[in-house]
């Protein structure tokens, strides 16, 4: 387990996946895209974590005290690959940072989800949809068991009948597809390795597209759904929605390429022909995740064998 392998697993594979994230999000069938990108993000995060752990551990077992603890023979261990102390310190630090970031994210997101679930239960009525008397146009889903859909009267007023059907179909798709689980998993992966952030952002986009396509199937007209999204976005912008989300992602962090935001991209995708499965793009992502997995597992097995050989017989 040496430097090239660590660089491959923590940097190169995530970088490669980064370049595939955008095209997959833009072009492939969003349901497949969501599954693939989430799976790739989690797999790559696990592999880079495993690589860091292995290198750090390989250096640790060379410390006589640790070797004694694990009843490993230093002579046998020295026959294994050498690991430089500097590299081990770096990987150890990175591993510590990754684990801390993952724990902090998991705690924060877990708390936010628990709160959302509580609110889903606490919202008035028993119906899935809660209409709030608010002139500002707004609509969102609250994940929970069961999840709820909150729509303001302002939003309902700004849409026609077909638009309301599309809106509800979109939000129901979020709930039935458990989309918060995908975005949370991808974000957790990105917390451990920042190079996976584009994948997590792509997943946040593909779940919207997934819900849009569900709405288009329910309504039976992609263009009508596109128009509904545009109408709702314009109404939300000008209808005095409380700016509690203004400080969130899009507004604070400028888009990396200064390109269009998610709403025009969703509308454009609905105006284009229905997305197909893109075998080559999808195979490329699977190949990257698989290659990373094979490399990481091989390295782990080498390590395991070395330690087994080095263990003093009882």
């Amino acid at each position: 387990m040496t430097l090239p392998l660590v660089v491959c697993l923590t940097v190169l594979f995530p970088l490669a996946s980064m370049f595939l994230a955008r095209p997959i999000a833009a072009r492939t069938d969003p349901r497949w895209g969501t599954w693939l990108l989430t799976g790739a993000a989690v797999a790559l995060a696990a592999c880079s974590g495993l690589a860091l752990t292995l290198v750090t551990f390989a250096a640790l077992v060379r410390v006589p005290f640790v070797a004694a603890l694990g009843r490993w023979s230093p002579a046998v261990i020295d026959r294994g690959d050498t690991t430089s102390a500097v590299l081990a310190i770096v990987t150890g630090l990175l591993l510590g940072m990754a684990l801390t970031a993952a724990a902090r994210f998991a705690l924060r997101r877990g708390r936010a989800l628990a709160e959302a679930f509580r609110h889903a239960r606490g919202l008035p009525g028993r119906g899935q949809v809660v209409v709030t008397s608010d002139a500002a146009a707004d609509a969102y889903t609250v994940p929970g068991r069961p999840g709820r859909i909150v729509v303001s009267t302002g939003m309902l007023d700004s849409l026609d009948d077909v638009g309301r059907v599309a809106l509800l179909a979109h939000e129901r798709a979020h709930l039935s597809g458990q989309h918060y689980a995908f975005t949370s998993a991808a974000r957790l992966a990105a917390a451990t390795n920042p190079l996976l952030r584009p994948l997590a952002e792509a997943v946040e986009f593909t779940v919207e597209r997934w819900a849009d396509e569900c709405a288009a199937r329910v309504v039976g007209d992609r263009r009508l759904v596109a128009e509904t999204i545009a109408r709702a976005a314009v109404a939300a912008k000008h209808g005095g929605r409380r700016r509690w989300s203004a400080a969130m992602l899009g507004a604070v962090f400028p888009r990396p390429d200064g390109g269009p935001g998610p709403v025009p991209r969703r509308v454009a995708a609905l105006l284009a022909p229905p997305p197909r499965r893109r075998w080559i793009l999808q195979a490329a992502v699977v190949a990257i995740a698989l290659a990373a997995g094979v490399l990481a597992v091989e390295a782990a097995r080498d390590m395991h064998e070395l330690l087994e050989t080095a263990r003093y017989p009882r």
């Binding site: 707004d138 609509a139 969102y140 919207e208 709702a232 939300a236 912008k237 989300s245």
Partner: peptide
Amino acid sequence: AVLSRFVADL
């Protein structure tokens, strides 16, 4: 982040 807004800011 755990709520899915129908439309993001424009």
